[in-house]
Design a protein around this nucleic acid. Structure first.
Lengths: 190, 190
DNA sequence: AGTATAAGGGAACAGATGTTCCCTCGTCAA
DNA sequence: TTGACGAGGGAACATCTGTTCCCTTATACT
């Protein structure tokens, strides 16, 4: 069994069971050998290479390699060679996109009012509640009982909600305005 | 110590240490009591409520509540009341967006050539290598030594790469064309 | 062939951990 | 006051688990 493939099996194990395997599980289910000694040698090498971490008690812990996606540079740069590929930074989408998990929600976008901001129907917005909006933030607001997504602007004339589409009108709230959340990211899945 | 707050502490513990706490760690570090019996009762209740899972050996496992973001409906629907909030489905961005982790990479977008598809400079594209492109997929291609992101189209006249911006021209590859990856998602972070 | 070296197998050990059990103490009703 | 009951504390136990040690087997070299 190859080194890389065995590590991948451990990653899968964690993905399924949400915990790391024990030495004996690695021995029987992954390396398919009978020797504890060699299992330890194999694990030691993985730890040394930074692919695995250890508890104070010796128990295994997942590393960044267990989560997330490898990050490349720009489109123009293209893909690195397989040799360089190992050096790539990995990054979890959740950690990257979510600041305060308690306050963050996913919300599906309907309507064309933010089209020119590159936000289109069917996109998923990540929104965070409880943050103070700044000018030009995209916000989820409840205006006179209706929910919308717009640019937020506050100036000497008061608060206005500005669409990113000339076919829609800027809203000047008459009675009630609650900024319920701020859009922190927009995701389009193909 | 309140029930909810204690659960949140356990979630934090997992977020930091990448493993679940033991009963004794919950007793000393979270509940701040001395009784194993009550610690077990507390954990039993969490397991019963589906907030925690257990190993065949009794060890604790994280549930879906430990990962991801809560998913709402549409913008128009607004936010649910705190009472309903508990019912929301949670979903990890990684699981949602990444099919094949081995083959998926993050790539930053430069240039305006896909502007009308709502993809703009600074956006992050999630791309997957090794998949066969279909018509109208957005692909990362290497044409005559240059890397670009374009719509893919194959018809009787051959393969063409079509920009989503009238200011750019459709590319008819002359010599070399390698479709290196297919764009599976686009993320814009504010 | 004979010997030395390494690899493989597996038992043994110490510490950690979920679970159970027992004792103590306070509260409340009769 | 007394007895019952439940909560809290903590010891005890069986199992699990990383680690080490020793013995056997294979391999390489002289």
């Amino acid at each position: 069994m190859k080194y890389e493939a065995s590590f991948e099996k451990i990653r899968r194990f964690f993905e399924e069971k949400k915990r790391m395997p024990t030495y004996r599980e690695i021995r029987d289910g992954i390396l398919h050998i009978a020797s504890m000694k060699q299992t330890k040698q194999f694990v030691d090498k993985l730890v040394e290479d930074g692919l695995l971490d250890r508890d104070p008690n010796g128990r295994l812990l997942p590393t960044r390699n267990f989560f997330g996606v490898r990050k490349l540079g720009y489109v123009e740069a293209g893909f690195p060679s397989p040799a360089e590929e190992e050096l790539l930074d990995t990054m979890t989408l959740d950690d990257w996109l979510i600041g305060n998990r308690e306050a963050t929600f996913m919300l599906e976008v309907k309507g064309e009012s933010m089209r020119d901001a590159g936000i289109r129907p069917g996109d998923t917005a990540l929104v965070e509640r409880g943050k103070e909006p700044k000018n030009d933030d995209i916000v989820i607001a409840c205006v006179d009982g209706k929910w919308t997504m717009k640019y937020y602007r506050k100036d000497s004339r008061g608060v206005s909600l500005i669409p990113a589409n000339p076919a829609f009108k800027t809203i000047w709230p008459k009675e009630e305005l609650r900024i319920e959340a701020i859009v922190t990211a927009v995701i389009r899945k193909y």
